[in-house]
C-alpha cells in the first residue's frame, strides 16, 4: 500500500548517468621552476673538473681567545685640563700671611678728606603732615615736571602719518568714481557732428526725392506701385529724422 502512494513518473525511467566525482587537479608547486633551476645549476658543477677554486683560509687566522667579545674604546690615561675648584675657604694646609702692617694714618687722612671735601647738597623732600612721612619731592607730583618736556603739546608723529594715509585713500577713491562715471555717461553729439548728420540726411532726401520725381506718371504695375510706396516711405522717414535733429540742439547718444 505504501508503494502505491508514491506516484510514478515516466521521467524517472530515464537512466541516471553516474556523474564522475570531480577530481582536484594534482598539486604543482609554484617553486617548481626555481627548484628545477637550482638543481640544474648544482648538477653540472663537477663538469668543470672539480669544484671552483675558492680562497683557502690562512692558518694564522685561527680563533683567538676573546676575539669574539666586543671591543671597547681604550681608557684615557690622564685627564688634561681638569682644574681643581678654588675653595671658598682656605685649605687646611694654608697658613695666613703674618706680620704685614700699614704705616698709613687713617685718622688724619679721613679728617683731612672731610675738611677738604665739598659739602653735600640736601635732597629736596616734602613732608605730607606735621610729624608725617618724608617723600622725595621729585616723584611727589608737586613739581611741574611734564610741562617742561621737550615735545609737550606737539601732535605725535604716528597720528600725522595716519591722517596722511587716509587722505590719500579718499582721493584715490574719488578719482576712481569720477572716472567710472565719466565712462558710463552718454556721449553727447558735438555740433560739428550734428551738422554733418543733418547735411547727410538732407542729401539722402534729395536723392530719394529725385528718384521719386522721375517716376513714371502712370503707376500701372505692381512693381512700380511697390517702388513708389517704398520711395514715399523712405522720404517720410528721412523728413521725420531731419525734423527731429533740427528741433533739438543737444543730442545725447544712448549707449546700449
Amino acid at each position: 500500500m505504501a508503494a502505491f502512494l508514491v506516484e510514478e513518473s515516466i521521467y524517472n525511467l530515464i537512466p541516471q548517468v553516474p556523474c564522475k566525482p570531480f577530481k582536484v587537479p594534482r598539486y604543482i608547486s609554484k617553486l617548481k621552476p626555481y627548484v628545477k633551476q637550482t638543481i640544474q645549476q648544482s648538477k653540472f658543477q663537477w663538469k668543470t673538473m672539480g669544484p671552483a677554486k675558492v680562497h683557502v683560509p690562512s692558518p694564522k687566522d685561527f680563533l683567538q681567545k676573546h676575539s669574539k667579545e666586543p671591543k671597547l674604546p681604550k681608557r684615557k690615561k690622564d685627564q688634561v685640563g681638569k682644574k681643581t675648584l678654588k675653595l671658598s675657604v682656605p685649605h687646611r694646609t694654608d697658613h695666613p700671611v703674618m706680620g704685614v702692617q700699614s704705616n698709613k694714618n687713617f685718622i688724619n687722612t679721613n679728617a683731612a678728606n672731610v675738611i677738604m671735601g665739598v659739602a653735600k647738597k640736601p635732597v629736596p623732600v616734602c613732608v605730607d603732615r606735621y610729624q608725617g612721612d618724608k617723600f622725595l619731592l621729585e616723584t611727589s607730583g608737586l613739581v611741574p615736571r611734564y610741562l617742561k618736556k621737550k615735545d609737550y603739546g606737539v601732535t605725535p608723529t604716528y597720528v600725522v602719518r595716519r591722517n596722511e594715509e587716509a587722505k590719500q585713500a579718499q582721493e584715490a577713491y574719488d578719482a576712481y568714481v569720477k572716472k567710472t562715471l565719466r565712462k558710463k555717461a552718454m556721449k553727447r553729439l558735438s555740433d560739428e557732428e550734428r551738422e554733418d548728420l543733418l547735411e547727410g540726411l538732407k542729401k539722402n532726401w534729395v536723392q530719394v526725392h529725385q528718384a521719386f520725381q522721375s517716376l513714371s506718371v502712370e503707376i500701372d504695375t505692381l512693381p512700380k506701385k511697390l517702388n513708389k510706396e517704398r520711395l514715399e516711405l523712405q522720404m517720410k522717414q528721412l523728413e521725420h529724422d531731419i525734423s527731429t535733429i533740427e528741433k533739438h540742439k543737444v543730442i545725447y547718444i544712448a549707449n546700449k
Binding site: E8, S9, I10, Y11, N12, L13
Partner: peptide, 25 residues
C-alpha cells in the same frame, strides 16, 4: 499517449477498453 504530467500511460485497445498504466512498473 502519455499524460502531460508523466504519471500514466494511456492506451487504446481493440477490445474496446482504455487502459492506463503506471509508467515505471
Amino acid at each position: 499517449d502519455f499524460m502531460r504530467d508523466g504519471k500514466s500511460i494511456i492506451s487504446a485497445w481493440n477490445d474496446g477498453k482504455i487502459r492506463a498504466f503506471t509508467p515505471e512498473t
